[in-house]
């Protein structure tokens, strides 16, 4: 019975984290903040659930499959959040003025000026090829 209780507790904790994720989705005011709320508790919640399953079935087959699931999640969640975050940051209407400091925008402004000069120089060569 004890492993069952432990698993149940872990699942409950996973449920709490999921609820926190959903509440964060509800209450945070910014797209980027909501993304923090959604993806991050997901990692830990899945980890807890995997441990719960592993406690119930401590066989090699199950443990390796769980390891696969967890490692997939660990690898893909950052990539997915990064792409959503990048899309959310670059599409300017999604970005509210809820940023205290934006060091990327400063770097973008600097790079923009450089890039304009560069593109102008190459633009002359492009007309020749566009033919």
């Amino acid at each position: 019975m004890i492993p069952d209780i432990i698993s149940a507790v872990l699942i409950l904790l996973g449920g709490v984290l999921s609820l926190a994720a959903a509440l964060g989705l509800l209450r945070f005011g910014d797209l980027l903040s909501r993304m923090h709320a959604s993806a991050k508790p997901q990692v830990l919640g899945l980890l807890l659930v995997a441990v719960a399953i592993g406690i119930q079935f401590p066989t090699w087959a199950t443990v390796t499959t769980l390891a696969i699931v967890i490692s997939f999640q660990l690898v893909t969640i950052p990539v997915a959040t990064h792409m959503v975050g990048r899309a959310g940051y670059r599409t300017k209407h999604l970005r509210r003025s809820m940023l205290y400091r934006d060091e990327l925008a400063e770097a973008v402004d600097r790079a923009e000026a450089r890039e304009l000069a560069w593109e102008r120089k190459r633009g002359i060569g492009t007309d020749h090829h566009d033919g």
Binding site: S7, G14, S18, A22, G45, V49, A52, I53, I55, Q56
Partner: peptide, 19 residues
């Protein structure tokens, strides 16, 4: 993002069900 949260809830629920 919200769909992702729903999916994560389903995964947790499925995992709990399995356990």
């Amino acid at each position: 993002i919200a769909t992702d949260v729903v999916l994560a809830s389903i995964m947790c629920g499925l995992g709990g069900f399995m356990a």
